[in-house]
Structure formats: structure tokens, C-alpha cells
Write a protein that binds this DNA or RNA. Sequence first.
DNA 1: ACTAGAACTCATCATGTGTTGAATTTATGT
DNA 2: ACATAAATTCAACACATGATGAGTTCTAGT
Lengths: 207, 207
Amino acid sequence: MTESAQRDTARNAARKPARRPPGRRPGPTETREAILASARELFADKGYDGASLRAIARGAGVDPALVHHFFGNKEGVFIAAMQFPVDPGELLPKIFGTRREDLGETMVRIFLSVWEMPERRAPILAMLRSAMTNERAAVMMREFVSSALFARAAELHGIPLLRIQAAAGQMIGVMILRYVLEVEPIASSTPDEIVELLAPTIQRHLS
Amino acid sequence: MTESAQRDTARNAARKPARRPPGRRPGPTETREAILASARELFADKGYDGASLRAIARGAGVDPALVHHFFGNKEGVFIAAMQFPVDPGELLPKIFGTRREDLGETMVRIFLSVWEMPERRAPILAMLRSAMTNERAAVMMREFVSSALFARAAELHGIPLLRIQAAAGQMIGVMILRYVLEVEPIASSTPDEIVELLAPTIQRHLS
DNA sequence: ACTAGAACTCATCATGTGTTGAATTTATGT
DNA sequence: ACATAAATTCAACACATGATGAGTTCTAGT
């Protein structure tokens, strides 16, 4: 696939209006992806309500009406930008192939591997930030998290849901302190320090 | 002109516009408090950016300009509504008067005692929700949490900051799952169940 | 009793929002 | 080569937002 569409398309938006003439652009269509990239970045940064369609369009170097043309309305953009914040099918095998006594460390490392990479963290942050202030987004997240994550994780090792949610709460809370609020010293700790800090707790919850 | 006589009869008191005549109202001033109450509720519900000055004014049965008159601008309202989300001076003695071996349970119970009462939970939720999408609010929360909570708690029992933040993360994460996202079954668990679930973890972190 | 100032509303401004319809240019199927 | 469809911009709507300045009514200090 063509990598000509870089992921930092949203970065070069600080320029002038850059009035393009109307009408279809020559060459294959790449704007749809650019819009989605810009949307993901802005939703991750400001949440659903804070990210405006116009800012998303600006980030993609595109007219706001084009966003509307592709996705119908703002919620359409959000849904398109959010499809699988993280692919469970990719992570669950790792968990399944782990000895019970190593579950804690494995889980923490998986979590960190996602959160440490900005482009993987973005959709999750977008979801979380949006769910905090927007009821519809909260419903989406609740359903995704419940059915796609908790339920499967529970059936996997036969661990009660409450325990799993306690473990998830531990991870989510620390991620918020570390990546959103950025309080020290936890924001500057190394991944290994986080693992050392949390693995025993997660292990406890999942036993 | 002709309808002005019948306009402000006592008939339309239950209506929405509720047009009050301009000028100061008789009696002692109670509007300032009403505005703050409305502000706290709305900030807790929608976060800083989601709560509009007009909605706050409407909630207090007051003209938007009055909010401006009292607090200067929106940030002024927020700051006035937020002073001490929770009073540390009130809670720390409880913590201090607890045996080290009971610290875990005590902490969880204190957290729950705050979060279970809607009017005590409101300012914290407002802070949290706002900090998730608004940078200035995030700074406020980071500073409050760092200096007023973590630092004091650390010096109290000589526990490393990282440990305290791990414990705080556990509590914050579970509170989000329980009160914001409202995922089951943790949203419907009794306080005692939450204590049983989390106390050992908090105890571990703080040892 | 008088007056300075506080409380309070109104009308309005400039800006930003999501959304829509029409116009223009290019790509695609025949 | 032609017609249809897709991609793209422009102009505009209707509405919400935070902010101001001016005017009206009350309270409080003298």
C-alpha cells in the first residue's frame, strides 16, 4: 500500500488557508484516510465534544463539508475513527499462552506496550476522554469494554468479573495519572518500574 | 404596549422565561450561592468545556450576565466552584489515627465515604472530567493532587510517592469504572464488597 | 435623606459550531 | 467518447458560546 500518506498529515496544518480550487483532485483518493488520522488525533486530544469538525478538516487540509460528505455527521466520523480501539484478537492469545503465575506481569506488559506507542494509545485515549463527558461515547465504551474485553477475559481463565474489573481499574487509574494528568514521579518512571510496581497487584486480583 | 399590563401578572410565574424585571432584588443576596451550586452540578456532569455559562445561569434562574458580574469570567466561576474539592484537613487525621495494618481498609472506606455522597462526589467529578479534556484544568488538578494530597500523604507515614500513586491509581480507576462508566458488576456492588476487593491491594501498596 | 455602589437584566457583538445545497472538477464504466 | 458518479470547495444557515456596556432597582454608609 502507498505510504505516501504520512500519518503526520495533521501536523502541517498551521499554514494559511491554502485555497485549493474546487472539484475533485487528480490522482487516487487519499483524503479519507487523512481525515481519519486527523480525527483520531483530535479526538484523543480533546475528546468527542472538544474536537470540532472544522478543526479535524483543517488538520487534514480539507474543507469541513468534505468530512460531512464522507461520514454523514460528526458521530459518523467518531465511529469510523474508533473502530476497534485495540484489537482483542491480537492480544488474547498472548494472555492465553501465559502460565497463571506470570499473568500479572504479562498483563502489565501488554497494557504498557499499547500505551507506550502514541499511535496505539490515541484511540484508547479518545474513547476514554470522550466517555468522560459525552453520554453516547460512554455507552459505546461501556459496551465495548464489557463485551469485548471483560467478558472474554473472564471466560478465558474463569476469573470472576469483579476481580477482572479491579485489575482493570488499577491499570486505568495508573494510566490516567501517568499519561493524562502526568503527575510525577509516575509519569517519568520506566516501563520496568511500572511493571515492578503493578505486577503483584494484578497477579493478586487475577488469582 | 397594550399587553404590557397583562404581561407580568402573577399568572406566568410557572412559565419558562420567567422574565424578572431588571434591577436588584429585595432581600439579602442569595443568587451568588445559587450560581455556585448550579455551576458545581454542571461542571461535575459535563466538565469545564461542556458546561456553558448560559446553562449555569439558567440552572440558577438568573441572567448569564450576572454570572459574569460576580465571577469575571468562566474560569472565575470554575475556580470559585472548585475551592477544595475535598478538604484534606478533615480526612488526614483519620488516616493518621489508624494502625498501619488497617491503613488499606481505612483508605478505601474514606474514599467510598466521599464518592458515595453525590454532593461530595460532585466537585471531584467536576475536577476529573474537566482535567480530562481541558489543559488548564489538568494543571489545576495536577497541582492540587500533588501538593495537597500526595505530598502530605507521603510525609505522613514515610511511604514513597510511587507507592502512593499506585494506590491512588487503583482507587481512581475503580471509581471511574463504578461511577462514570458504570460497568457491571462493579457499579452495583455494595461498599463492603468494594472494601473487601480493594483493601488488601491498598494495604500492599502502602506497606 | 442622600448618595455611592452593589445586584440585576437587556440587547448586542464577534466568533465558533454542525449541517446543508449547489457548483465544479476529476475518475470510472461503457 | 460519453454519461454517470465520485470528490471537492464555497457560501450560507441557524444556533450556541463567552463577553461587554448600558440601564434599572435595590441596599448600605453617612
